[in-house]
Design a protein around this nucleic acid. Structure first.
Length: 649
RNA sequence: GCCCCCGUAGUUCAGGUGGAUAGAACAACGGAUUUCUAAUCCGUGGGUCGCAGGUUCGAGUCCUGCCGGGGGCGCCA
């Protein structure tokens, strides 16, 4: 399992809503039938039994398989084959499956089931909401109980441009947020802006000096300027010096000191600047109007740039999602005092910590440090305050942190401390689920963290530019007839699809290798492949309309008798189940994999089943409808991942 | 030293709660009625699933121990 799971096992996710009687999902229907059959065939066996129905790995064996007989045989004291035979004997699936019998049993006791083609049409109608099931949207039902889900994403820092380090937190966070929203939950995005603390005071002070010196104006300063000032300020406040430390430490005397005079001078000057930055920090924390107004300006510029880059990434991160560390500043003192007075926190070597080493506290050896010896607070303190607010005031039943995997220990500590402190108690009752959706690093093709040749972080704006440029060249090559503005639009969507699909399609906890060449080849398992499949569904519909052969699809019945049609139909029906599983695990790559399967099923259907030139008008109508449905599921899935779509390409 | 994560084809990656012969993509090679968009489809070759034990009808998946890589470990965020 991936690391950084929240809390203890008992606070794990609730099971998803039970299937309804008029389900469109073959797995649910067959599971229910198999369960009944087992109950009839083995009345003596106690306890709930998993019917173990899944899609077949190989289409040649069947559409679905039941693996319950092996375990059941053991419990009932009969051979697995015998158990399978008894299940088959009691199984009533004539309305949805082709006849089952001895021949349906294979190997040690697998039961293979094949859906009747006629049954598929009905399932598709139910899936599409036209079969009478109210509140169904592409198979997704409103949840029995809607939950408030807070998704912590993006996590930019003040006065810094967005770079690859923010890519995954933004893309994955947005996708997770969209998945929960799509399932009908109330989602609140939170951009935990790093806008507080000494480094921020350093850059704020630096900017004030620059403005005073007339080198920049507060109104005209850009984020790029601020980034430079940030680095300069860090350098100018750096008092570390191995040479000076060694000389002082080993008492190497005046001669050595004289030789290293410049270095001593640098350390002294930087020390003064650091002290000044600390004074600026105090002013900022006490809401000094002059300092705060400059700080405010930095915040505004940072957020504006962040929102703009996120928009280019088709990630929904807006100013109102900002929840800066500064917004918790006034709560930290009382929070720590409260924990101290309740005996949850304690003073240790002058600092305040929350111990987590007991088994019932989470069994974490390292305590959670929430106040420094000098009285300062740490980012763990802020995260504690954030969880308290999100659960206690915002009503979150689930808080998901899309933050890189290196923070695993930090979140284990913070989550455990919150449990101890009672911050996970939901006002209406119950406990909130805290989840760290940890992700790995973006690596370059050399296997090391992805950087520019000069060793700088790659700016997201540059990354998107590059993807767009490559996509534009490709679109121009393949569809030069389209207008330039349309090609620009397609290039944006295709480039962003390529970037995001690459990021989302592998297991998030692992590092992945970033390669423009591979990503933007647009061949095989890539984002653009999915867009291409979608475009083809729309192209057929467009052609049908132009030719005047597009029927009113609402009056058309689905049918799926050709193997490729059947495979496509079965793939479509899996959508909601995949979405639920992916959301529950915060694993967008499952949706990616599904959409790739669906796109593949559509491509084979496209290849093997003529639509406009179908043998009969009836078949054409059905295929047009199947095509339309496949397109809607593809578009819905892409939308749910935050991948932009296009009409043609 | 302790803790966490990762190890699957030449390369990049998938492989819910253990299930049949471990799947894609890329790269290589060979095909597809001159097309509803070929950014596609079909086929061929390619694997001691890091190693060794264990659990059981069955292990890439679960347990233990190693090996290799990465990350983290109270006064940074």
């Amino acid at each position: 399992m991936s690391g950084g799971e929240a809390g203890r096992a008992g606070s794990y996710d609730e099971p998803m809503p039970e299937p309804e009687a008029n389900s469109f999902d073959p797995v649910e229907i067959l599971s229910s039938r198999v369960s009944s059959a087992i109950a009839r065939a083995f009345p003596g066996v106690e306890g709930a039994l998993d019917p173990m129905v899944t899609a077949s790995k190989q289409a040649s064996l069947g559409d679905f398989q039941c693996n319950a007989a092996m375990a059941l045989g053991k419990r009932a004291g009969v051979s697995p084959r015998e158990a399978a035979a008894r299940i088959v004997g009691a199984l009533e699936v004539g309305d949805v499956c082709e006849p089952v019998g001895e021949g349906s049993i294979a190997g040690p006791g697998f039961i293979n089931l094949r859906l009747r083609a006629e049954a598929l049409g009905g399932l598709l109608s139910a899936f599409d909401g036209s079969g009478g099931a109210a509140g169904v949207s592409l198979g997704v039902r409103a949840p029995a109980a809607s939950e408030t889900v807070v998704v912590d994403l993006c996590g930019v820092n003040l006065a810094k441009e967005m770079h690859v380090g923010h890519l995954r937190a933004t893309i994955i966070g947005d996708a997770v947020a969209r998945m929960y929203a799509r399932l009908g939950h109330r989602v609140i995005r939170q951009n935990h802006l790093g806008d507080w603390g000494l480094p921020i005071a350093m850059v704020t002070g630096k900017l004030m000096e620059e403005v005073e010196a007339g080198r920049v104006t507060l109104g005209g300063v850009t984020l790029a300027d601020m980034g430079r000032l940030y680095k300069a300020a860090q350098r100018e406040c750096d008092t570390r010096s191995p040479a000076v430390e060694a000389i002082v430490r080993w008492g190497m005397g005046p001669k050595a000191e004289a030789e290293w005079e410049d270095e001593f001078e640098r350390v002294r000057e930087n020390g003064e600047r650091l002290a000044k930055a600390k004074r600026t920090l105090v002013k900022l924390q006490s809401h000094d109007p002059e300092v705060e107004s400059v700080w405010r300006r930095i915040v505004d510029v940072t957020i504006a740039a962040c929102v703009s880059v996120c928009a280019r990434l088709n990630a929904e991160v807006l100013p109102e999602h900002t929840a800066g560390e500064s917004s918790y500043a006034d709560e930290l003192g009382p929070l720590v005092e409260g924990l101290l007075s309740r005996g949850i926190a304690e003073v240790d070597e002058g600092a305040v910590i929350v111990r987590l080493d007991r088994e019932e506290w989470g069994g974490i050896a390292e305590p959670c440090l929430i106040r420094k010896r000098d009285g300062g607070y740490l980012y763990a303190t802020t995260d504690l305050a954030a969880i308290r607010r999100r659960v206690g005031q915002m009503g979150a039943g689930r808080v998901i942190y899309c933050v890189d995997a290196r923070q695993s220990l930090h979140f284990r500590q913070v989550f455990a401390a919150c449990e101890r402190a009672g911050f996970t108690a939901v006002p209406g009752g119950g406990r909130a689920v805290l989840r760290h959706a940890a992700f790995g690093m973006v690596l370059g093709e050399d296997g090391k963290p992805f950087k520019t040749r000069s060793g700088e972080n790659v700016r997201l704006a540059d990354l998107i530019d590059e993807a767009e440029a490559r996509a534009f060249a490709k679109v121009t090559e393949l569809a030069g007839g389209l207008s330039e503005s349309e090609r620009r639009e397609i290039a944006w969507a295709t480039g962003v699809a390529a970037i995001k699909y690459t990021d989302l399609s592998s297991d998030r906890v692992k590092d992945y290798v970033f390669s423009f060449d591979r990503m933007v080849s647009f061949e095989g398992n890539t984002g653009p492949y999915l867009l291409y499949a979608l475009v083809r569904t729309r192209s057929i519909a467009r052609k049908a309309s132009e030719a005047g052969v597009m029927p009113d699809l609402s009056g058309v019945a689905y049918s799926a008798s050709e193997p490729a049609e059947k495979a496509l139909a079965l793939s479509i029906l899996r959508y909601p189940g995949v979405l639920r599983g992916a959301a529950e695990a915060c694993e967008p790559h499952r949706v990616c994999q599904y959409l790739y399967d669906l796109a593949g099923a559509f491509a084979r259907f496209f290849d093997q089943c003529p639509v406009l030139k179908a043998p009969t008008e009836e078949v054409r109508a059905s295929r047009l409808k199947l095509c339309d449905l496949a397109g809607r599921v593809l578009a819905d899935g892409l939308e749910t991942l935050g991948i932009p779509t296009v009409e043609r390409m």
